[in-house]
Amino acid sequence: MRVLVCVKRVPAPGAKINITADGQAVDTAYLAFTTSPHEECAVEEAVRLIEAHGGESTALTLGPGDAEEQLRYAASIGVDKCVLLPIDSDGSTGGDWDPQRTSDAITTAIQGIEAADGAFDLILFGNESADSGNFQVGIRVAHGLSRPMVNGIKGIELGNGGVRARRESETGVEVYVLPLPAVLGVKEGINLPRYPTLKGRLASKKVALHVVCPSGVVGGQQMITLVQTAEKASTTVVLGHGPDAAPAVVDLLEELGLLK
């Protein structure tokens, strides 16, 4: 079978997210980059599906040329092929594309790949991107390809020409049974992603990188600026040091009515 997984390069902030002076981006001067945990799990799931059923997995990203790093990471844990849609090759900043433009470009790229190499049985997305969180790129791509799509998936089983997908709801678990080819949005918790081995990292350098020039129509949501959230000023009350602080903690529990 053929599985495609779409990942996005995002900064990995620590205690606080700082914004550049012009308000247009997260200040990444001192930050590493990563893929969202949801998408890391989607990559792991793609690799496991191919391990179990045979075939080929591909990772795709639309982003700055540096997003090759996230594709190499996917390759290092076992993805077979990489597709990069560079948005800064025309000398632009590589800033975020809006969700309509992103899905338009990804849909077109997938159609091109499928025309050359055959259809993907399953396309995996993250539930939402970590940074912009638009909750829609996967759904728009699925609609563009006329394929069924369910988001928020925490369990995937293949069989009988279809896929059983589980997701959590307020009251329990919902099961969906989709015909293939299908599209799913994956949530962290579906699996525990492996760490790349040294061998995997070396092998990933040899995986061919297919570069496709992205094109997408600009959509109706346009960013003006990023804004820091208001931080409530906190004055921490230190109740004590080490085990000697226990009586003060229990006094607090009593005060909060938690010691019933």
């Binding site: 620590g14 205690a15 606080k16 906190s234 921490t236 009350v237 230190v238 109740l239 004590g240 040091h241 080490g242 085990p243 000697d244 602080a245 226990a246 009586p247 003060a248 903690v249 229990v250 607090l252 529990l253 010691l259």
Partner: peptide
Amino acid sequence: NMVTKADYAVIGDLHAVVPAITNEIRRR
């Protein structure tokens, strides 16, 4: 960051502090 943003804090090794809190609750 968790300490500076919290309302209350205990500075110390959780392996000593947490059991001490449980014991104090039981004692009371």
